[in-house]
């Protein structure tokens, strides 16, 4: 693995760890998995147009998150239910527009050579995700406890919700190369769930989730090189091992 690839995968891991914490605390664990499928039609269209599929996925995830946000505000159906419906439709369209090996790569990772536009996009997007989480941390905490209380504290709850959903969607797009859209949900959720079990305050949870995510990414990458396997599944297995190990702690 090249230095560029390693750098990109670590940036992705840090972003996933941070976003995962708030996704888990907001009970969006399953949403991560479901929203990731929205990327599929974008991948199909990008491949048909000979564009890097990461960009197709990112564009589709962006619109998917926007749609979830808009429908959530308009109807009384929760985000989970809306994401559930979107996921099924996206999967149906995605399976029609993508075929065979490309579909497997999109779902489980392991795409061809890393080119510089994707590297630049990945590093910039990871930085944006990390900055958003650090800067908006306090507002996200208050909104998590009570959206009403957040409003009286001057927080634009609707806007913050949209920004969080878009950050979440961008993080899934970031994982396409190494994890595939299906497994990226796992890298967002497993380190955060593990950190939630171990931590006693917010800072400890954020730090632990990032540490576990980075450890799983490095460990999975090394194991993949050693075993000559795809990296994504091994990253998830290392993360899951950390989760199981957390049961030894308490």
């Amino acid at each position: 693995m090249s230095i560029e690839s390693l750098l990109l995968s670590l940036a992705m891991a840090v972003a996933a760890g941070l976003v995962g914490c708030f996704a888990v605390m907001r009970r969006m664990a399953l949403a991560a998995d479901a929203l990731s499928h929205v990327a599929l039609p974008g991948i199909g269209i990008a491949l048909a147009l000979h564009i890097n599929p990461v960009f197709g996925a990112a564009a589709m995830l962006f619109f998917g998150a926007l749609l979830v946000w808009a429908l959530e505000g308009k109807s009384h159906v929760g985000a989970e239910a809306i994401i559930g419906v979107l996921f099924s439709v996206a999967l149906a369209i995605g399976s029609m527009t993508t075929s065979g090996e490309e579909l497997i790569e999109a779902l489980f990772g392991g795409m061809g050579v890393l080119r510089w536009p994707e590297l630049v996009f990945g590093i910039l997007a990871s930085t944006a995700v990390v900055l958003f989480m650090v800067i908006q941390r306090n507002k996200l905490v208050v909104m998590l406890v009570s959206p009403e209380v957040a409003r009286t504290a001057g927080i634009d709850v609707r806007r913050l919700n949209l920004l969080f959903l878009e950050t979440f969607a961008l993080t899934i797009a970031l994982g396409m190369r190494y994890m595939g859209v299906l497994l990226m949900g796992a890298l967002i959720i497993i380190p955060a769930v593990t950190a939630k079990r171990l931590a006693r305050n917010l800072t400890a949870m954020l730090q632990s989730a990032v540490a576990i995510s980075v450890f799983a990414t490095l460990g999975g990458t090394l194991l993949a090189a050693w075993l000559h396997r795809e990296t994504g599944p091994l990253i998830v297995i290392v993360a899951a091992a950390c989760f199981l190990a957390s049961f030894l702690r308490r």
């Binding site: 605390m25 941390r137 306090n138 507002k139 905490v141 208050v142 998590l144 406890v145 009570s146 009403e148 209380v149 409003r151 009286t152 504290a153 001057g154 927080i155 950190a195 939630k196 079990r197 931590a199 006693r200 305050n201 917010l202 800072t203 400890a204 949870m205």
Partner: peptide
Amino acid sequence: GYVPQKLDIDRDVPITGMDFLAARASL
């Protein structure tokens, strides 16, 4: 200032009272 009706917060969410108040103070 607004104090809502009883909120339902999961027991295992690692946000302490201080985390919550520090967030308000920084806002």
